[in-house]
Design a protein around this nucleic acid. Sequence first.
DNA 1: TTATATGTTCGATA
DNA 2: TTATCGAACATATA
Length: 262
Amino acid sequence: MPELPEVEIMRRYFEHSALNKRIVGLQFHDPLFKVFKSSPEELQDSLIGSNFISTERIGKYLFIKTDQGNYLHLHFGMTGDLELFRSDSLPKYTRFVFEFEDGDKLAFKDLRKFGVIQLVDSPEVYQKANKLGTDLLKIQASEFIEAIKGRKIAIKTALLDQKHFAGIGNWIADEMLFNAGIHPKKACNDLNDQQLKTLLKEGQAIVKAAIAKDTHYGDFPKDFFVNYRKEGALHPEHPNSPVERLVVGGRGTFIVPERQKL
DNA sequence: TTATATGTTCGATA
DNA sequence: TTATCGAACATATA
């Protein structure tokens, strides 16, 4: 699920469900500890008895500040999600649970276990240390253009790289390229500033629209490309050019050939 | 059985 | 040293 808009919605969900409540317990449900980058002892020491007081998001990376001053970092990988619950039975694919003093429990669910749970000093420190770029909604056009210009890799590969700007995932990259009429395999250094500017504008608009719809795909505008993102589908603006699937940078990629040419 | 899935990282190579 | 590419990770579904 999680690209920038989904993580933004999760950030808000976390704020509504878990802020300013004492943490009284933690549960670990990942025997091989794949999603934990901090040890259970560290997490216990740092979180039990503390409160979460605020949240921040950079691209797909979520940071939650504790009243101790440090942060819990959550990444949702491909299949991560949050769910508030109270029952004794765990939500499916739960890997981690926060227990709060009011009886609420918050599950970190992650089928494929590509997610990350980790204590960090601060978002800024993490961002520097891990070469995480500027959030897509905050980046200036000049910075965006500079980050792409001159590279010889495929534009889609550059869009998915979180190093210079963060938040674009597979479907949003396809959506941006469709809107801008650019072929995903086009080399970065074959694009002019105007095209890059358009890409950024489209990307920000897509992300904002998705957030406005609470990332409920069914509620997205009818002409969003993601609605036709499968082989052979027909976008209303291109009734004679069925969607084709290709692979770019190892990721499934969908285009309308008539609109996106090399 | 094989291919695919909304993500990131790491090792090999240039 | 930096940029790029592809495999790997874990699990379910078509």
